[in-house]
Write a protein that binds this DNA or RNA. Sequence first.
DNA 1: GAGTTTGAAACT
DNA 2: CAGTTTCAAACTC
Length: 709
Amino acid sequence: MGATVVIPPATSVHELLECPVCTNSMYPPIHQSALLLRTFLSLLHICTGCIFNHRYVKSNPREVENATWMLMDSPVFSFINSLSPIKPVKSAQIGQTFSSLSFPSPPRAFTSSNLTCFKESKVLRRHNPFGASRPGLSSEDGNKFQTSEEAIADSFHPYHNSRESQGNFHDGISVVDDSIALPGEHTDFSAEILQALNYNNCGNPGSDPGHEANSLEVFNQGLCQFDPKGQESECNWDNLISGDTDFFVFNSPNDAAFKGIMQKPDSHFMSLVLESSIYNGLRDSKLKIEDYRPEPLAIIDQMQDKHCLAMTSKTKEKPNVEVVSVMNCGTRRRCLDFETDSVQRKNSDDNLKSGSLGYEKQLVSAKRKSSSQQCIMPAVGLHLNAPDKEVISNDESSCGIHLNLPSCTSVQIYTSYEHQEPLAIEVDSSNIGPQPAKDNSHALDSTVNDVSQNSPKKKRHGDCKRCKCKKSKCLKLYCECFAARDYCTGNCSCKDCCNKLVHKDKVIQAHKQIESRNPLAFAPKVIPEPEIGNDPNKTPAPARHKRGCNCKQSVCIKKYCECFQAGVGCSLSCRCEGCKNTFGRKEGANSMGVEAQLEVETEACGKVVEKASQIIEVQNSDNHPDFIPISTPFPLFSSLSEVKPNTRWSQPPKHSQAVSDQEMTDVLGGRGRSDRSPMTIKTSSPSGKRISTSKGELTISFPSPNHHR
DNA sequence: GAGTTTGAAACT
DNA sequence: CAGTTTCAAACTC
């Protein structure tokens, strides 16, 4: 307790952090479900691989995160628990504004894999959250908040009861930006904010009275980035834990961090907290904050989505900062409206003259509507300087966060609460520039998709749709959501769905029933494969499907095959016939004749080469500055890199659909691995085919037909 | 978007 | 445990 940890900042946006334990580059964030875990790890700069098995993380990133409960027994967790909160000793970068939308275009797509962009970190320093400097926050106040550890603990099972799982957790991590200066102009605002965020009455009878108010939110600048021209907008989940600049975990809104943020409306600050079913704890914390803000406050009941975004932006304009917390699955949502405009503040009583009333009206309207109609509200986050704009979108399909930026750029962030779902942003920048590519979501999609790789049956190419169960009531493993231990959302198109919080009992019952039948039914399907010596040829994949597939028709080269879908090779566990899994065939799958095998291999390899050629073509034609070539450690494309020496594709070219992210992902090893180790792609020719290039043209050479594995 | 194919899950 | 049915995702048109 009380140890001071100074975390050095990365020096470059593209600099990868180094795990102090293993000295490897840190594994990037994998998906959203382990947000808090990754937050902790990021703050400690300890990579996921050092928490879990490195090879397992490589091959089963999602499973690792699904197994974050393991952390509870991890000494690292104890270590984290023993640390006092962190606060930065270096200021956030200043100079990016929403008004100018000068966010740098982040790397896209493949960033999450080997190329995760760990942006510039702040030097963080822990401080004692139990110090006397907690004005206005009594111990009783503290009881109102679920600790971040509790949130994590609660999050370890999607069907948890956050209130039932009171743990013996203590302090959280607080990151305070000491450098945040308070423009006098905004002093009143901050005071107002803080006054508004009055916690004196916030209570949580169910909480442990011994608990200190704790980490409330995880914020991270750079999570979402907006292109100045509105042509590019992305949410970079990697940034969420990458130690990026302003990374805040508030002890409470009364905490200095919160003050700083709110007192500095021009600070470049963004945050996004996804509220999934596993984030009830965090959500509860959020709920507490907003519960006791006297006004303006709107309560939106009976929400089902699971997002929460809070954001402030650095803008030279005085933003109306409205923080809207969206609760999920029948829990309430709270909406905050922070006005920074002094005039508006002074005239706060005269809301008719201020835009905030517009918010209020709309929010209240939304509340009424939601209360009366039990509508499913998509995620709502923060709205900036857009009092005249729609605050909350009731479009279920949007399932996102609607941001109205001062520059008239409306940013719609689409994200499912589900960790495996793609995240997307749409930017309506009609007033400031060309319309963004319709498929802005694609970039994010790819980003998050990368993050969610190796997870079977997760992604459905850019949309927010999820399961479509009709008969199973989403209470059987047929249902992807249920199988992933997630609740269905409004994004699902299922019928008679019972996989909702309101049917929690049914869900748990079904869960238990299935587990009684098969205790491992919800266990990761892909497990690490022990290395076979050091011969890479004998280690087709670092993981394999636990039970193996049983494919008959698809010959394991389509997503019907769970092995293929998981991006792993087939193994002896498989009972497939005519296996042609490009990620690796099971031993003894060479029953086909040499010619047939060669044909198959040629076809498979040809497809890979074709895709690679497309990529190269796109790259050459696009020549985008953000298209960052990097060296490839990975055998297949080390050959391709001959086309462009030392070239690999950290991102797909922007605005190009010539090669989809998914395709690229597929080409680059299937599921978008999140580690940055060389990927094992079985198209590296079981028969020893070699891909070489000459003057930019790809050629494939084949060894003797007698060559077999 | 509708229909088909496919293989896992569930059932017998 | 094997065979059959159910189911929903993946795929095709």
